[in-house]
Design a protein around this nucleic acid. Structure first.
Lengths: 340, 340
DNA sequence: CCCGACATTGCACGCCTGTGCATCAGGTTC
DNA sequence: GAACCTGATGCACAGGCGTGCAATGTCGGG
């Protein structure tokens, strides 16, 4: 009936204590697992808390405790199939681990990554998961000094107090090359963006190495950002050449979609009859009937699992750790059947 | 050289004060815009802060201030093109407004939305932007009582202290119907998922209303979740019927992609020659050459803009506000040219 | 030289919680 | 009945910050 306490601020433990006729300590203990409170008191507190709509202030709790429960996700181009899948998996996993994700956008520039990390420090984030862009050594040290653990995904650098999560990109690239050779591709090609990412470089490296061992030099098209539009451009470039490729490894599904569309709609080529295409990531669109793309599946849930497990574990000393996961091949219809 | 202060916790204002030989107050004032500090003191403080890697603790700051600077984004199925675009726009906009986004996943169930909101309250979020799922009235009141402002996107309910952001979905549906009629469609169809969303329902309603005025009853296929796979199923259902539709309005691009693929790859139909398709959202894939979909563009940046503007504004009284935005039509090649 | 205006600085308090320590009630054992 | 143990409870403090208030120092004007 008489609903007081409607001012402006949130309802605090003192309000609950007042309403329940107990001390504020009792309220605190009620919401602290393992603390000593009598069932009677606890019941009174819970009743009052429910009536007032009380919730423990995690900010204040984070002041005293060493952990705030917040983990920063630092990411560029979230509106991209692979990224959004990974972020979704990460937030999911963090939540079930009792933590919560704070999203910080960057534009891939070093400056914006630095700003993002500083903001993360400002909120006393337990850790930061960096999906894109690269903090330099000094920045990483600053994070460490502020008790902020760093998770680097798809990066080569390894620093103290840091965990790296990597895929077997090189092996996947090699497998792509072997697959194309087995299909009988005589003019295999590599399509990649110009973005200097460790994982993209590793995929290309593995691809080239296998071909080189067979004495084959791949046709290459490398430019642009990692996007569908670049894929289109790469495709039209490749198919306009004298020696038209008959098998293409695209370091990313997004690129592969563009390449396939260029082949079909701009050059009237049939996939896989005239051309085999292999991608990487297994974004949802790779499974769409318009593409039916043979590709490598990013183990997003395994990646998320590894990150969160490390975060939940004890603050491992100062050695850098590395987690390696493998990308399973997914067979669809963009590669001639004999290749399997 | 002598790097002390390497314990465990983060570096605090007191550490900086000690290093700079000033009071902790001076440090606080240095980082508080508009506070009174002499240039000399400020310089000493900044130097010490840089050397130690100090960053103001936003958690503690949020304790005193009324605002924490955190805004919760409550969303399901983030790994979906439209959602990820919207979330990306929102986090971007929030950041430039000096706030930061906290991502909370839900599985669309009411229970998980409730849990999400409670977590948001726990972190004394300034506001919560609900992209999917629906808090009930009691829950909204609890938020309000805790000083948490609520932004509801694509919802019908309007409650005190809340803002709704809506599109002119009904008008768009109507326009889709008029467009199909103009192309000469004799058997127009509606494809929708079974998810009971206000916006989807409004699109369908507008579509049906225009047709009804012309004495036409659309062929309808309505089932499943809002996904590409459902689109495939809807398409195969529709194209298997006696009276095969020659124009389809899909309430979502994701559905439309599935419908187009079903038409092309399962029934050998040509788009737009045998069939016109209109979607909604303008997800990136709608612009891909494989689809070239005519659709309605979700004004994601305008939506984000509206949300953040409201959040940054004064805590408007207790009336519910509503923002209406319009979805511009995007012409591509999935509708016969004469339709324009 | 004196006085008022003003900028700067530090003390102390409040914000909200968790927790060590002391207190106290209640019950058990001899 | 006394000594003792146990579980519950409250006090007081810490944690990092912003800010009102008072004190100090500085400068200009008269």
């Amino acid at each position: 009936m008489g609903a007081e306490m409607l001012q402006k601020g949130a309802v605090s433990a003192r309000d609950v204590a007042l309403a329940a006729g107990v001390s504020r300590t009792a309220v605190s203990r009620t919401f602290t697992p393992g603390a000593s409170v009598s069932p009677a008191t606890r019941a009174k507190v819970i009743a009052a808390a429910d009536a007032l709509g009380y919730h423990v202030n995690n900010l204040a709790r984070g002041l005293t405790r060493a952990e705030s429960g917040i983990v920063a996700l630092i990411v560029a181009e979230l509106d991209t199939p692979y990224r959004s899948r990974l972020v979704s998996a990460l937030t999911d996993r963090l939540q079930t681990a009792g933590k919560v994700a704070m999203m910080i956008n960057t534009d891939r520039s070093d400056a914006s990554v630095e700003a993002a990390l500083k903001q993360a420090i400002g909120y006393r984030t337990d850790a930061a998961i960096v999906l894109s862009g690269m903090p330099d050594r000094a920045l990483a040290d600053m994070c460490l000094r502020n008790g902020l653990r760093l998770v680097l995904i798809n990066r080569d650098e390894a620093w103290p107090g840091t965990i790296r999560v990597r895929l077997d990109d090189e092996e996947a690239g090699a497998r792509a090359a072997r697959t194309l050779l087995r299909v009988g591709s005589e003019r295999p090609a590599l399509a990649s963006s110009a973005s200097a990412t460790a994982s993209l470089a590793a995929r290309a490296k593995g691809f080239r190495a296998v071909l080189a061992a067979e004495g084959v030099v791949p046709i290459e098209a490398v430019f642009g950002a990692t996007s569908y539009e670049t894929g289109l451009a790469l495709g039209t470039d490749l198919f306009s050449r004298e020696a038209r490729p008959d098998g293409i490894f695209c370091v990313t599904d997004l690129l592969a979609c563009g390449v396939i569309d260029a082949a079909r709609h701009r050059f009237n080529l049939r996939v896989p009859d005239d051309l085999s295409v292999i991608g990487f990531d297994d974004i949802p669109q790779a499974g769409w009937e318009a593409y039916g793309m043979t590709t490598f599946r990013q183990p997003v849930t395994a990646i998320a699992e590894a990150c969160v497990a490390w975060l939940s574990g004890p603050a491992a000393g100062t050695e850098a750790e590395t987690v390696r996961l493998s990308a399973e091949m997914v067979w669809r219809s963009s590669v001639a059947a004999s290749g399997r």
